[in-house]
Design a protein around this nucleic acid. Sequence first.
DNA 1: CATATAACTGACTAATCAGTCAGTAAAAGT
DNA 2: ACTTTTACTGACTGATTAGTCAGTTATATG
Lengths: 187, 187
Amino acid sequence: MDKKAKVLDAALKLFVEFGFHNTPTSKIAKEAGISSGTLFYFFPTKDELVVALYLDIKGKLGCEITESISQETSFKDILKKYYTTTLDWAKEHIAEFKFMEQFNSSPYLKKIAEDEIQKYVKPLKELLQNAIDEGVLKNMDLEILFTLISGHTFSINQYLIISEPKESKRGHIISETFDLLWQMIST
Amino acid sequence: MDKKAKVLDAALKLFVEFGFHNTPTSKIAKEAGISSGTLFYFFPTKDELVVALYLDIKGKLGCEITESISQETSFKDILKKYYTTTLDWAKEHIAEFKFMEQFNSSPYLKKIAEDEIQKYVKPLKELLQNAIDEGVLKNMDLEILFTLISGHTFSINQYLIISEPKESKRGHIISETFDLLWQMIST
DNA sequence: CATATAACTGACTAATCAGTCAGTAAAAGT
DNA sequence: ACTTTTACTGACTGATTAGTCAGTTATATG
């Protein structure tokens, strides 16, 4: 019933399949089973819909990660949970992941305030800084460390989505690539 | 004078600034200083223009890399040259890099034949397979190895473009992050 | 129940879009 | 010199687009 959510669902599906271009608001409304007017009632412009969808997804992934790492105590366990939760979430939310990818590398990204992005990035950066201070991680530039970890996670994610390994093999890949990452950044 | 090249130049600039959507062919023609008809004389559809631009850029980067690694002999030197050449090229061709990124994570990618992509990927994969066989690199799945290397390169590239370090610092970052990569994948 | 507010509709519009076409200019071939 | 091919033009068009608006229905509130 929640028509606002239906618009976001429909937009996600169509954006991933056809891109931002080639996805008119009229098709989104049709796919969502609502009228064009209702779409613009909830989202005054198409751009605002795109940005709202992005923030919605970012928020959901953020919650998932925050919750999952809350049970861990050691830094290595926290980072591993970060890693596995991200990969598992992406597997169950492939469209969301593809959309975020598309959004991140488009000029739309500029429409989001810097602190909106930092909101999701800051907690991890603080964890990393602590780990550096405690001598658990190599003493390198925080930004570079962050880049290496996100880049590694992102690329393995891509690989897992494309190659669709069986669950057992998938587990191996995740744990082995995490070990490689850990070997690279830890003291 | 070469108006076809001017179209590609103009398209690159506008796509990077405004995205594929929000970049009408009329604006591209205007920016290129030609008529709308000429644009469609060279590129029958907008999609074909986008794809042609992508292949043009891919080709140029490919040539650059092929040429630069031809002087090296040891595998480690070749890989390092691969790494540095890619990063240096991206620094001098930021728009090209951003466009490729946007293209790679858009549905446009599907419009390119698989073997067209493999053309650029195959040479590196063969080098990697040899290095595995010779025991220089860890014996891991070739695809994963390739993913790790590209992901690492890509993310450091992103970092360098955003943070714009001074030339001296830049050199340090490149050489240190290569060492980290090498440490991760070599035996 | 009455009234106000929020959710929703779909026909409509002004603007914009990708692509066409009839025709011109320049270059290449014979 | 003549003919053919290639490069190029820009006004035009039919389709599509984001967004509007006057009005309807549902929901909440007093």
